[in-house]
Simulated assay, not measured.
Amino acid sequence: MSTMIKMVRVLTAAAALAVAAPAFAAGEGPHVERQSWSFAGPFGTFDRAQLQRGFKIYREVCSSCHSLRLVKFRNLAEEGGLGYSEDQVKAIAAEYTVEDGPDDAGDMFERPAVSSDAFPSPFPNENAARASNGGAYPPDFSLLAKARAAHRGFPWFVFDAFTQYQELGPDYIYGLLTGYEEAPEGVEVPAGKYYNPHYLSGNAIGMAPPLSDELVEYEDGTPETLEQYSKDVSAFMMWAAEPHMEARKKIGFRVMVFLIFFAGLLYFTKKKLWKNVEH
């Protein structure tokens, strides 16, 4: 009975922590609203149309400042990619130029990009990037959806392991892109900064609001709103950070089925081998 009472006390304490956790988490980072994503959950998959829209936003808006150096053009046509054909990828790559070399004379030269190339950076180096952005360094988009996420705090990260909640990065990016607002009374924003309560490193961010309604033209009839743009580019950034997510989930599911089946075999084998042995 005493063991049962202890278990009840532990569960009660855990429940109390769960109720209090939002207050603790709120002090550790900005509040992040959970969004609905097609790739959420253990069986979630990417929406190819959404990924292509997000890629369009990256090319037309974000690529002027942000690099995508860990993604190669050929990744767009691979299984689990954006659904482009190899010919479409070659056409996309041909729109870019990359530095290559050295040639026979020892000089570097530029050439049209090919499928095996990575997306070229908009700036030759970090100093040039900072000089063009008021001292701020635009982060690379390749892993941003996994690297930028508000800390959930205890015990939420424990629950996330069981609920398979892995979308905190896209949730944060969406909140950041839609979170620009006028600074409240009494809050001073430094010159060249913009007020955004969703920003991880304080409320003042060096990036001007990058998106607005009707900024990018969609050809599939999807609403051209700030919210839709933000969601599409956040989904694309999640794909860029984990392009093999769908394959990982499929393998994980098969492994879990195998382990459950194998555990059952071990249990019944043990029962059969030891059924005539007195304990």
Rank of each mutant, 00 (worst) to 15 (best):
P197H: 10
D87Q: 11
S234I: 08
G252H: 00
R69Y: 00
Y195I: 03
R248G: 04
M256W: 06
A129K: 06
L177E: 11
R53V: 01
A13C: 05
G186T: 02
L17H: 01
Q52R: 15
K270R: 06
I5L: 14
Y195V: 02
S142C: 06
W274K: 14
I57G: 08
T163Y: 08
D160H: 00
T222Q: 12
N75D: 15
R248A: 10
F261Q: 01
W156Q: 15
L177T: 12
A13F: 04
S115N: 04
F154N: 10
P155H: 01
K250G: 00
Y218F: 11
P42E: 04
A77C: 03
M256G: 03
R59H: 07
F268T: 11
T45S: 09
Y194G: 03
A118R: 14
Q88C: 08
F162K: 12
S234R: 04
D220L: 10
E182W: 08
A191P: 04
S142F: 07
V71D: 01
L177I: 14
A208S: 10
E224T: 04
G101P: 12
V98H: 07
Y58I: 02
A40G: 02
L200S: 02
D232V: 06
F236V: 07
S38E: 10
T12A: 15
D104Q: 03
L273V: 15
S64F: 00
A247F: 12
E79G: 13
R148K: 13
Q52D: 13
A129N: 05
F141H: 04
D171E: 06
L144W: 11
K275F: 00
F43R: 12
F24S: 07
A26L: 01
F162M: 10
L143A: 07
D220K: 05
E28A: 15
T12L: 14
